[in-house]
Nucleic acid binder design. Structure first.
Length: 781
DNA sequence: GACACTCAGCGGTAT
DNA sequence: ACCGCTGAGTGTCAT
C-alpha cells in the first residue's frame, strides 16, 4: 500500500496535461504508455500525436470522487530516477506528496525533481533511463521530453489547469501490481543482450506481451472514465474480414482477366493450388510456398507477354505484378494468410523474392507498398498495434552497419524523392514499432536491395528476425521529424543478408573468396569472369578442357524459306516482324531478358537478321549476365552456382560444346547433352505437349565447352533447358538454353534434370543420384 | 547510365 | 477514404 510519503522520494512525477487518449499500464512489463491526442479541426480527435512509454516501478491509480459531475482520474506514478539530469529537464518546486489529477488537457509535460533531490534508494529491477539524452547531434528529443514552451504550459481555456498545489484525498489506493496474474512469468531471454549504453534512451530489456493492461479511454468532454474489462466496446474496432473468392468463382473484372482465366485455372490445377487448406495437410509449407511463388511468376510473365503484345494502351494497367497477384489472392492461391509474429512456415532465411506481391502471397509481409506490417492485439477491449515485419528498401534515409543492425526510418511524412514534407507522426506502423520496442517481440526483416543483374529491379532477401532496441526522433534532411528505430538481428540464425555482403566484397575485391583456385577459368573468353573454387578438399580443379563459350556446329541444318527481320532498333513485342511471328506472335523475352513463357522452341533472331546484338530477341547470344562460379561440391564433384540472385525465367547460360552425331556418343563422356532424351514434363505451361525438336541435337562438352558442362543433375532441379532456334535464310542452328525455373538465391547450386535416354541406348549407364531431394529417383543418366 | 519525376495500383487500416 | 520503403516508364542531366 502506498501510504508513506517518504516512499515517494526518489521518484519522478509527470504532470499530465494534454488530452490523453489512452493510458496503458502493464503490471507485467512495468511500463506505462500514455497516448495524447490533439484536438484537430472539425471537432474530431486525431489519435495521433504522441505516446510516451516509461518503465515504472509502481503505479497507483485512484478514482476520485465526482468532480463537477464527472469522474476524475488521479494517477500517481513513481519512476526510477537514475541518471536524471536536472539541467536538461524543467526543474522547480515540486511537492512529492502530490497526486495529480489527469483531466483532458492539452499536452504532456514532464516534471522532474530538482537535482538536489534525494536519489533513488530503492533499486528496482527495472532499468529506467532518463529520457534526457544524450541525443546524437542533429536529433531531436522525443516530443514529450522537450522542455515545454510557455504555450504548451498554458492549459486550454476550456479545461482547468491541474492544480499542483492542492493535495488530493487518496481513497483506498489499489496498487496496480495486484492486477498481475499470478502465473505470469518473465519471458525466456533468447540471448538478447540488454544494452545499457549511454546513448540508450529506453531500457532495452526484453518485455513480455502485455498480458494485463489497465485501459482507459477519453471522451474529452467528460473527462476520464475508467474502462473495465468488459466495457471497451466503445473503442473496439471490428476488423474487416475479407472473403476470398475461391475455386471456380472467377474474378474476371476486366476483359484481359477473362482471357487468362483458363490459363490461371490450368496453372492452379497443375500446381495443385486449388484448395490450399486441404493441400496443406499433405504437403509441406516449403513446397507450397515454392509453388505459389512459381505460379505467381508464371502468371506474371505470361500477363507481361500478353500486355507487351498489345502495346502501350493509355489508361490500361501495365502492372502485371499487381494484377497477377490480385488474381491469385482472389483465387485463394496464397499461403500463411494468418498474419503472425515470428517465422513464417515455408520461408527460410536467405530466400529471395523479386516483387512485393510475392512477400504478400507467401505471408511474409502483407502490405504491398508500406514498409511496416503490423497487427492489432486485443488488450482488454482496446487494440494495440505491434509490428510483425518490415521491408528495409533504402527508400528513406536508413543506415546499417555490419549487416546485423538496421536503423529504420518510420513511415509517413509525405515522402517526395528523398525529402520529407512534414513531420512523421506516431501512428500506424510507427506506433506499432514503438509498441514492439516495449513488447520486445521479434520482427521479421526483409532487405530490399538493388538487383545488380537488372536495370530497374529490386531483390528482396528475407533476413530473419530482429528486435527493436531503440527509438528516437531525428531531424531529416528537410528539417522534418523522422522516427528512427534501431533493430538488431536475433543471434543464432543462419546467415542471410551477411552472405550478400560477403559476395559484394568478393566482387569489389575487398576480401578474397576462400578457396579460390582460379579467378577466371574462362581466361577472358566470357564477358564475365567465372571463379573456380574449392573450399571442400584439396582437388585443384576439374579435368582439362578447352573453354568455348559457343556451340560448335560442324555443319548447320539446312532450312528453307526463312525470313530474317529488319528491325534496326531491335525487335519489339507489339510490332509485326518475322521473328516475332515465328514465336506465335509473342516476343519470348521481357525487356529485362526474362523468358516470358515456356515454349516448345524459342526462335531468336539469327545471323542474317538486321537487328542489333542488343535486340530483345537475342538474349542467349549476348553472353553471361550472371556472375557464376564453378565450385567443388561435397559429394558430386564440381558444380555450378551464381553469386547473383537469379529471377525465375532468367537465361543462365547455353550448353555449349561440340555438336556430335547421335551415333557418336562416347560411353565415357560424362558431358553429353542429348536433346532427344525424355525430360520430365515441366508444369510450366498450359500444354501437355512434350518438347519437340525439329532435328536431333547432341552436344559433347567433354573436350570443348562452357560453364554449362558443370551443371549437375537433380531430380528437383531449379534450372530447365529450352531449345533455341537461330536461323539464317538457309541455315538453322539449334541451341540449348538453360533458364531458371524459379528464383534462385546466391550460391545455391544450379541443377537441371538430365532426362532419360530414349529406347535402349547401349553404353549409357545409370549413375547414382546424389541430389538429396526428397523426390530423388536414386539414379540418373 | 544514374537519377528525378510521374502515376496507376491495390491490400490493408482507419473512419 | 486514405495510405504507402511499388514498379515501370519517360525525361533530364552530366559524362
Amino acid at each position: 500500500m502506498f501510504t508513506d510519503p517518504a516512499k515517494i522520494e526518489g521518484f519522478s512525477f509527470w504532470r499530465l496535461t494534454g488530452s490523453i487518449v489512452s493510458i496503458n499500464i502493464s503490471a507485467t512489463t512495468h511500463s506505462l504508455t500514455l497516448s495524447s491526442s490533439e484536438h484537430s479541426g472539425g471537432g474530431q480527435f486525431a489519435t495521433k500525436n504522441c505516446a510516451l512509454s516509461l518503465h515504472i516501478s509502481a503505479l497507483y491509480a485512484f478514482v476520485a470522487d465526482k468532480n463537477g459531475g464527472s469522474d476524475v482520474l488521479k494517477v500517481q506514478i513513481r519512476l526510477m530516477e537514475d541518471n536524471l539530469g536536472s539541467d536538461a529537464v524543467p526543474s522547480g518546486p515540486l511537492d512529492k506528496n502530490k497526486v495529480f489529477a489527469i483531466k483532458p488537457l492539452r499536452c504532456l509535460v514532464p516534471i522532474f525533481p530538482s537535482g538536489s533531490g534525494p536519489s533513488a534508494t530503492q533499486q528496482s529491477p527495472f532499468a529506467f533511463v532518463a529520457p534526457t539524452g544524450p541525443f546524437p547531434p542533429g536529433s531531436a528529443q522525443f516530443f514529450p521530453f522537450v522542455p515545454p514552451n510557455e504555450s504548451q504550459r498554458q492549459p486550454p481555456t476550456t479545461t482547468p489547469a491541474p492544480d499542483t498545489t492542492k493535495s488530493y484525498a487518496i481513497p483506498s489506493p489499489v496498487p496496480l501490481n495486484s492486477f498481475r496474474t499470478p502465473t505470469s512469468a518473465p519471458p525466456p531471454d533468447n540471448g538478447t543482450k540488454v544494452t545499457t549504453t549511454t546513448t540508450t534512451r529506453r531500457s532495452s530489456k526484453t518485455l513480455t506481451p502485455y498480458d494485463d493492461v489497465y485501459t482507459q479511454t477519453d471522451n474529452y468532454e467528460n473527462g476520464f472514465t475508467i474502462d473495465t474489462e468488459d466495457s471497451g466496446d466503445a473503442i473496439k474496432r471490428k476488423r474487416k474480414i475479407r472473403k476470398t473468392v475461391k475455386g471456380s468463382q472467377a474474378v474476371a473484372v476486366s476483359s484481359s482477366e477473362v482471357d487468362i482465366d483458363p490459363l490461371v485455372n490450368h496453372l492452379l490445377k497443375s500446381f495443385r493450388l486449388v484448395d490450399i487448406d486441404t493441400i496443406l495437410q499433405a504437403d509441406s509449407n516449403h513446397e507450397l510456398v515454392q509453388r505459389v511463388v512459381l505460379v505467381y511468376n508464371l502468371l506474371r510473365r505470361k500477363i507481361t507477354q500478353l500486355d507487351d503484345a498489345k502495346g502501350v494502351i493509355p489508361g490500361i494497367s501495365r502492372r502485371a505484378d499487381l494484377r497477377s497477384g490480385t488474381i491469385l489472392m482472389n483465387k485463394g492461391a496464397r499461403v500463411n494468410t494468418k498474419r503472425r509474429v515470428g517465422p513464417v512456415p515455408g520461408v527460410d532465411i536467405g530466400d529471395v523474392f523479386f516483387f512485393r506481391m510475392e512477400l504478400c502471397l507467401v505471408g511474409l509481409h502483407a502490405p504491398i507498398m508500406a514498409g511496416i506490417d503490423y497487427l492489432s492485439f486485443k488488450v482488454s477491449g482496446d487494440e494495440e498495434p505491434i509490428a510483425v515485419s518490415i521491408v528495409s528498401s533504402g527508400g528513406y534515409e536508413d543506415e546499417e552497419d555490419d549487416g546485423e543492425v538496421i536503423i529504420y526510418s518510420g513511415q509517413g511524412g509525405v515522402q517526395r524523392s528523398d525529402k520529407l514534407l512534414m513531420d512523421q507522426k506516431l501512428e500506424r506502423g510507427n506506433l506499432a514499432l514503438e509498441k514492439s520496442l516495449h513488447r520486445g517481440n521479434e520482427v521479421r526483416v526483409v532487405r530490399g536491395l538493388k538487383d545488380g543483374t537488372s536495370a530497374t529491379g529490386k531483390v528482396y532477401v528475407y533476413d530473419g528476425l530482429y528486435k527493436i532496441h531503440e527509438s528516437w526522433i531525428e531531424k531529416g534532411k528537410s528539417g522534418c521529424n523522422v522516427f528512427k528505430y534501431k533493430l538488431i538481428r536475433v543471434s543464432g540464425q543462419p546467415e542471410g543478408f551477411m552472405l550478400w555482403k560477403s559476395i559484394q566484397q568478393w566482387r569489389d575485391g575487398v576480401t578474397t573468396r576462400v578457396g579460390v583456385i582460379l579467378p577466371d577459368l574462362t581466361s577472358g573468353a566470357e564477358n564475365l569472369p567465372i571463379c573456380l573454387v574449392n573450399d571442400v578438399d584439396s582437388e585443384k580443379g576439374p579435368a582439362y578442357f578447352t573453354y568455348s563459350p559457343t556451340l560448335k556446329y560442324a555443319k548447320p541444318y539446312s532450312s528453307s524459306k526463312n525470313s530474317s527481320c529488319r528491325c534496326s532498333n531491335g525487335c519489339l513485342p507489339a510490332a509485326t516482324c518475322p521473328c516475332v511471328e515465328k514465336n506465335n506472335g509473342y516476343l519470348p523475352y521481357s525487356s529485362g531478358g526474362i523468358l516470358l513463357s515456356h515454349n516448345l522452341i524459342v526462335h531468336e533472331c539469327g545471323p542474317s537478321c538486321l537487328c542489333p546484338p542488343s535486340c530483345r530477341n537475342r538474349v542467349s547470344q549476348t553472353g553471361l549476365k550472371l556472375r557464376l562460379e564453378v565450385f567443388k561440391t561435397k559429394n558430386k564433384g564440381w558444380g555450378l552456382r551464381s553469386w547473383d540472385p537469379i529471377r525465375a525465367g532468367a537465361f543462365i547460360c547455353e550448353y555449349a560444346g561440340e555438336v556430335i552425331n547421335e551415333s557418336g556418343i562416347d560411353s565415357d563422356d560424362n558431358y553429353v547433352f542429348d536433346a532427344g532424351r525424355i525430360f520430365d514434363p515441366l508444369e510450366l505451361v498450359a500444354t501437355d505437349e512434350p518438347v519437340k525438336i525439329p532435328f536431333p541435337l547432341v552436344v559433347s562438352a567433354k573436350n570443348k565447352g562452357n560453364v554449362g558442362r558443370f551443371m549437375n543433375h537433380s531430380c528437383t532441379p531449379n534450372v530447365y533447358w529450352q531449345p533455341i532456334m537461330r536461323e539464317n535464310e538457309e541455315e538453322a542452328y539449334l541451341h540449348v538454353g538453360l533458364y531458371a525455373i524459379k528464383h534462385i538465391a546466391p550460391l545455391q547450386e544450379l541443377t537441371f534434370n538430365y532426362g532419360v535416354p530414349r529406347g535402349e541406348k547401349k553404353g549409357i549407364a545409370k549413375k547414382k543420384c546424389l541430389c538429396g531431394s526428397v523426390k530423388c529417383k536414386g539414379f540418373f543418366y
